[in-house]
Design a protein around this nucleic acid. Structure first.
Lengths: 94, 94
DNA sequence: CCCTATTTTACCGTTTTCGATAAAAGACCT
DNA sequence: AGGTCTTTTATCGAAAACGGTAAAATAGGG
């Protein structure tokens, strides 16, 4: 762990959460009440210092009324999302 | 915990992982090697018995070459995804 | 400056993930 | 029947999440 790539992932998740929360005009304490996750824990999550569990992610997403998938990746609101794949052409997989 | 809604969520995540893995023709052991998550752990995850961490979800998604967000929610491959938002009109938030 | 609200950080105790390993259970084939 | 591959389940120990609480920072407003 302390992997650099994973840190970036968690930071991305955290900043996305923070962004939406601030858009909603919510404080950490309010989001804590809505999501059932304590404010200190939320702080760690939003700053990318905690590797949260999937159910926690979903609780936060529900509280923010956003799709949980939109928190784990940068997904421009109305993105087209074509080509998830059709005929899998994945390289080596060795 | 043992919340019913969360169990459904985890089951959904697990079955989505399993589906993609089988589409790729991978065994649990192979996915374990690709993702760095042990086969027993993967078994628990795919059967919805474990609340995995976000970084684990991402490692699995990377190994399967799929977007991590597509694992946490049912997102029909080429879905339009309109209207994630426009002007937030969320009800009470009390 | 003081006061208040918000956020961050630290500590503690409980719970849970996770890898490793092993064993049990299935599935499929000859 | 055996054999092999796959999946599930169990147990163990380490690491980490999480809530709670409390204490520091960090803002903003008067």
């Amino acid at each position: 762990m302390a992997d650099d790539q994973e840190n970036r992932r968690l930071s991305g998740v955290g900043s996305r959460i923070r962004k939406v929360r601030e858009d909603r005009g919510l404080s950490l304490h309010e989001l804590a009440r809505l999501s059932g996750i304590s404010a200190p824990a939320l702080s760690l999550i939003e700053t990318g210092k905690r590797d949260l569990r999937v159910t926690s992610l979903c609780r936060i997403a529900d509280a923010l009324r956003i799709a949980a998938g939109d928190l784990v990746e940068d997904r421009p609101a109305g993105a087209a999302r074509v080509s998830k794949r059709k005929g899998y052409d994945l390289g080596d997989y060795t």
